[in-house]
Amino acid sequence: MARSSDRPTRERRERRFALVLFLPAFLVLAIGTTVPLFYLLWASLWRIDLSMPWLSGFAGLENYAKMAADPRFWNSLGLTVIYTGSTVVFQVVIGLGLALLVLRIPRGQAALRIAAIMPIVLAPVVVGMFWRTLVLPPDYGLLDLVTQALGLGSHNWLGDPQLALVSVITIHTWQWTPFSFLVILASLAALPPDVFEAARIDRANAWRRFIHITLPMIRPAIAIIVIMRMMVALSAFAAIFAATGGGPGTATEILNLYAYRTSFTDLNLGYGAALAVVLLAITLLVSFLMFRLRRAA
């Protein structure tokens, strides 16, 4: 019975070993994310204007008060809601439609899967540039070639404020719909085939089969997609930055881009930090609500 006596020390040794393995990564994350987070909160209470450094000083809640009366902030907030909401809905609806379609194709699924991976692995900044230089420019862009051939005329896809918003939403949807498509396809393929057989024998029509059987079974996958894609859309940056830079004017300037432009174009880091804090609060709130909804479902 020597074992029982050395057991506590063994356990303690294992714990110590676990800590030694975990601590380096933990420290990097604590120093690299948590400390900066508090620094951000602190910076949002200061006037830090690199173009007018002599004005710097403690400002209290001044940045936040300024924000409440800043029409550009409210505009960016509205655009964030539109951008996030529409891209997520499009990704899920189109991705689901495609997955249902592709599931019925006996051959060529592998080729489609490879095509779907392409946009996902590309850098968003490259995707933004691609669309800006090859797809969207008036007259010789791909899209204009199509619309002109169809007799719909030429459009300034990135120069017209409303079209520009549609364009950046389209770019995001183009790049990330393959993701929801792949996830939904994988979860559809994992469903037991006898479920469908039973329903088919019951002569349930296709639509009802989808609503009552398929959809409830893939709901967890859809919930994951919605949560993840909302997080990403809220902090989307590089593709919009490359395609429009937030413009024309502020037509595509979601909150994320406004925070960036304020900080690194206008060099007003204090106000930029306050904007970033609001974005952070929205992100946390959304993730909290989504996870609660998911748990309740």
Binding site: R15, A18, L37, L40, A43, A276, T283
Partner: peptide, 28 residues
Amino acid sequence: LDLPGKRSGGFYVLATQMLPPVGLIIPY
């Protein structure tokens, strides 16, 4: 392993991933 505070440790790692990059870039 029997890491003390395992659950919260795992959650912490996950939470750090959710911070928007624009929020961190200013302190960086």
